[in-house]
Design a protein around this nucleic acid. Structure first.
Lengths: 208, 208
DNA sequence: TAGATTGTTAATCGATTAACAATC
DNA sequence: TAGATTGTTAATCGATTAACAATC
């Protein structure tokens, strides 16, 4: 009998909880409550308690949650208490900014390979890990050889679907897609989108 | 009697529909159906029809939707059939990549002011609109003077809340926040988040 | 202890889907 | 016309919330 799957929407909130806990740690705080977290995140305390209850009992009645402990637990649940090797495709302005972004450090991700199709880019050393840009023809083989299962797409929209396909063939199971296009992948492969235009357009509806 | 508000979750999908329609136009297509759109986006055709039905009748039985027409209608609904002036705060690596990003062109947004607190950055000319970076002290006044209601935060996390507050005081009603922290804003101010770490951590749970 | 807060239940609320009459 | 697809209804499904016993 399979355990009932935990809803995607619950999984989706855990990284946000984790981010808030990191911030509280940085503030030097020791203990928090579902009420305080909810106030900070703009969601109800009941929802936070319910979400956490899918995974176990992490708090103490009357006291709340030990911040460091809950952070550790959430890291384990999300499997980010270890490092995931990441391949980045696209070494243009956007790809370079991603490779240089310091925010991945300590969050479970490490960009260890970068690919581009522009001869001028290939061979350049890029990003906080000083990775040499490889030709995109080497993508699939490199993914396999290094056992990489997480990919980031930072190419123009017209190449995103083809790159996604190659990534999947190379064994990638999770894709962060910065290209402004919905990509199709087989079942079992996960995709998340980063599209600032979508973010902005979600708000203009409400403006005068 | 107030019209029943359209659910946020419906509004949130419209930019994704719009993105798909833009892609179909680029492919030279004229007509599509809820079925085809749904297949491309990985959602049900019924949901697309239901979502659109909140706003009117845009299709023809037996035929489907005229792509250019539906695109125009969605642009109007989302109020992106005009240009929104945008202020960007943070002119570091990330801010520079945002200012240089060509994807805002033709999507309703125009970065017309950039701010930073680093004297080395102030005075630099940056981005596809060749904007001169201003000191952050001028943020609130500039927002007011130019009637800017859309802001982008690309500062380190520790400054994001203060910048958000200044933006709100300057009249901003929609904030796209790249800083990895949840910010608190008054009712009526909208926030969307761009956090690649959250995107990646939402997927690792499902990996082996 | 008294006060606070959890974890959980049951009720409410809202979103999605299936199905089909209408009609192009 | 015959075939296709919309817009909409009602049913289903799932998520959120309120409330509170348990207990630190």
């Amino acid at each position: 009998m399979a355990k009932r799957a935990i809803p995607d929407i619950v999984i989706g909130r855990l990284p946000v909880y984790l981010r808030a806990l990191n911030f509280l740690v940085a503030e030097g705080r020791q203990v928090t409550s579902s009420q305080e977290l909810g106030d900070r995140l703009g969601i109800s305390s009941a929802q936070i308690r319910k979400d956490l209850s899918h995974f176990g009992e992490f708090g103490k009645q009357g006291t709340g949650y030990d911040i460091a402990f809950l952070r550790q637990q959430l890291s384990e649940i999300l499997k980010v208490n270890r490092m995931w090797d990441v391949a980045l495709v696209g070494a243009g302005n956007l790809g370079k900014a991603i490779a240089d972004y310091p925010g991945f450090v300590g969050k479970g991700f490490n960009i260890i390979a970068i690919f581009d199709n522009d001869p001028a880019k290939i061979g350049q050393i890029m990003g906080i890990n000083h990775v040499t840009v490889q030709p995109v023809e080497e993508l699939e083989r490199t993914l396999r050889e290094r056992g990489i299962v997480v990919g980031i797409i930072a190419t123009p929209a017209e190449h995103a679907q083809a790159i996604a396909r190659t990534m999947v063939e190379g064994g990638v199971k999770a894709i962060l897609n910065y290209a402004p296009i919905t990509i199709m992948v087989p079942p079992g492969v996960h995709v998340q989108y980063i599209d600032p235009v979508v973010g902005l357009q979600r708000m203009t509806y409400y403006l005068a």
